[in-house]
Design a protein around this nucleic acid. Sequence first.
DNA 1: GGACGGCGTCAAGAACCCGTCAAGGACGGC
DNA 2: GCCGTCCTTGACGGGTTCTTGACGCCGTCC
Lengths: 224, 224
Amino acid sequence: MSDVLVIDDDPPLVRALVINLKAHGYTVRAAGTGAGGLRLAAERPPDVVVLDLGLPDLDGTEVIAGLRGWTDVPILVLSAREHSREKVAALDAGADDYVVKPFGMDELLARLRAALRRGSAQPDEPTVVTDDFTVDLAAGRVSAGGTDVRLTPTEWRLLEVLARNHGRVVDHRRLLLDVWGPAYQDQTNYLRVFMATLRRKLEPDPAHPRHLLTEPGRGYRFEI
Amino acid sequence: MSDVLVIDDDPPLVRALVINLKAHGYTVRAAGTGAGGLRLAAERPPDVVVLDLGLPDLDGTEVIAGLRGWTDVPILVLSAREHSREKVAALDAGADDYVVKPFGMDELLARLRAALRRGSAQPDEPTVVTDDFTVDLAAGRVSAGGTDVRLTPTEWRLLEVLARNHGRVVDHRRLLLDVWGPAYQDQTNYLRVFMATLRRKLEPDPAHPRHLLTEPGRGYRFEI
DNA sequence: GGACGGCGTCAAGAACCCGTCAAGGACGGC
DNA sequence: GCCGTCCTTGACGGGTTCTTGACGCCGTCC
């Protein structure tokens, strides 16, 4: 799961944090000094940093600046200081959130989840490559022999469903549901028509497809 | 500058917020109810939302859910309730930050800056360059043939979404959502009109665009 | 061997999408 | 209050895409 770096010089608090974070499935590393924290972060970039101000060696904003120099990792600041000037300074230095001690552990965990949610908000969509053509799911494009292939919207949606499930047989019903909607679950002839055009556009020998395969009586399968 | 949407039913507080935010150069809109806030957000997507819990009509998490259904805009929650259960619920519903009343205005402004900083953190190239024109995403400017091109706000927002996703097909729905808001998801004619003006201003031969391409039935694509 | 169901192919009309233009209206600046 | 800019809205023609039905092939099952 997610990798949390705790930078704090208060041993009891660090212990409590580590125990609670590990109990929730996080991987935790801890440093007692600002310099140590920066070193750990440089070794392996964490997914989120929990930073206590009031470290013995460095000022909080210095640690933040040291991290912000090379990473956008979310930084959650802990502090006993209520003064808003401290908060403003930390936030403007690049911190993402500021929690005043004492705090509830569930609140901290919730703020951590919020910070992580922001940091990792991109579902990666791979590109599916065969010998004869390439399907770029993120870009929404298909190319064969170096040039783009023009697909109509329906052709694309059909190919997309198959490509996302490549290697598996996709049901007639599933395909019709995903491409045309629930009212078309019996129109298997649609599949025949559009599979034909896809093969014409993508397969070197449309009559003997190598990638867009028919599974008689069941559905179709995209094979790489 | 940035567009802030305040959703709060406490008139004195709203007044204070509006005055302070405007004094710092923000554009501010305010709503006294959750439904009104959602409506304003739908009319024109704000850059950040300041949301008071304890609204007369909707629960705070409902408002958050209503926004999160279509946008990733940062949400900063205000609340008089200290209870951590409230905080956890709001943060897990999708809020980005949680400030307990009473709060200092400078702290709120700092948290707002932090939220905006995150929201606009575009990791990739700040300028997109084609053979015929240059889009400077950081500066918000476009130039063709060495001179600046004047774009209207809507034209710019449309071009910005396309440029940030250059090389990819961007859905009709996504474009309408990001530029006009969720109330306009079906107004594809807006896209036609504004794509035409963009092409007239940027393409050497608007009738045969080289960069602002149509993907029939799906959307548009910015190609370098 | 024949009937049958599943599949691929083809073609034609309908439906839809896109680019274009222009008029009306909202908004803000002077 | 006037003027200019910008956004909204409707209409139209041309082109593309989807739908639909018919036909033939092939394998399987009776």
